[in-house]
Computed example of a mutant assay.
Amino acid sequence: MSRTSRLATAAAVGAAALLALTACTGGGESDSADDAAGVAPVTEGVLTIATGEPAYAPWVLNDDPESGEGFEAAVAYAVAEEMGYAAEDVVWVRTTFDSAIAPGPKDFDLNIQQFSATEDRAQAVDFSSPYYVTSQAVVAAGGTPAAEATSIADLKDAVLGVASGTTSLTVAEEVIAPDQDLQVFNSVDDAVAALQNGTIDALVTDLPGAFFVRDAQLDDGVIVGQLDSAEGGDEFAFVLPKGSSLTADVTAAVDALRENGTLADLETEWLADQGAPVLQ
């Protein structure tokens, strides 16, 4: 019960209850102050950042976030620096994806592993402003003509697959406008199977999914490139404990890095230049 509610109850039940309330007012005010301050950092003077176990490229290279190599590792250190933390004051821990967004106490100050900010998840955790908006990408099997494409024009004759009801379908139609009808599948997995058996030449999906298809589902997959459209992209944001005292500071840092071009530079360095160029 809040302090305001307690005062209202005390007024209703009479002077005796009011006196009892007065006797414990100090504790009530302290609780309110703690609530206003928010959930404190795990360790004073240290920024504890979590990522997945394991963490995959291109988000974290070689499962080593301490190196600062990989898009999300680099973003994390840039945010820490913007907040006034030296690199040596950053400590990394590991969590599963699901535990990070579940209700309850956390052993991290912020967590970065491709979390899309949603209203449902925001009931249990805090989100920063987004550090990345996903784009659509084209992934092909190695050794095919589609894998050798270097422009949108090179993909016009390709047989392209997409999952039904996705942004990928809309973007593929509008940006590539292939000469052949798009092959529409019930799911991304079905489209990947079609890519594996040669039914389609290439698959259009979101960039995080394209990296997964290339690295985990194809033996010789190639990301042909990204499509220049942010339509319907998911917004990736840092996750923080619900009510964290650091949420506003992390958001301010992310916003500053977006405005000064740092996030765009890191996206180019670790996503575009590491195998996902933007197709023109």
Score class of each variant (00 low, 15 high):
S67C: 03
A177V: 05
E53R: 13
A102F: 05
E29Q: 14
S151A: 15
Y85E: 08
C24T: 07
G27T: 04
A210R: 06
T134D: 13
M83D: 02
G165Y: 11
F127E: 02
C24G: 08
E69M: 11
W92C: 01
E148L: 09
D120V: 02
V184F: 12
K242G: 06
V222T: 06
P208L: 04
T25C: 03
Q123R: 06
G26A: 10
A10V: 13
V278E: 13
A76L: 04
A102I: 06
A74Q: 01
L240M: 07
A100H: 08
A10G: 05
D107E: 03
D64S: 07
V171D: 02
Q280S: 15
E259P: 12
D63S: 01
E148N: 10
L7H: 13
A276Q: 10
A16R: 08
V171F: 05
E88N: 15
P58A: 11
A33I: 13
V138L: 09
A191T: 10
D255G: 12
V278Y: 14
D35W: 02
E88M: 13
A163E: 08
D63M: 00
A17P: 01
A177H: 10
V139D: 06
N260S: 13
A149P: 05
Q217T: 04
R3H: 15
D109G: 01
I49W: 05
A37F: 04
S2I: 13
Y131W: 09
T268N: 13
L155R: 07
T48C: 06
G84M: 10
A141T: 09
P130L: 04
A272R: 11
P208F: 00
T9N: 10
A193P: 08
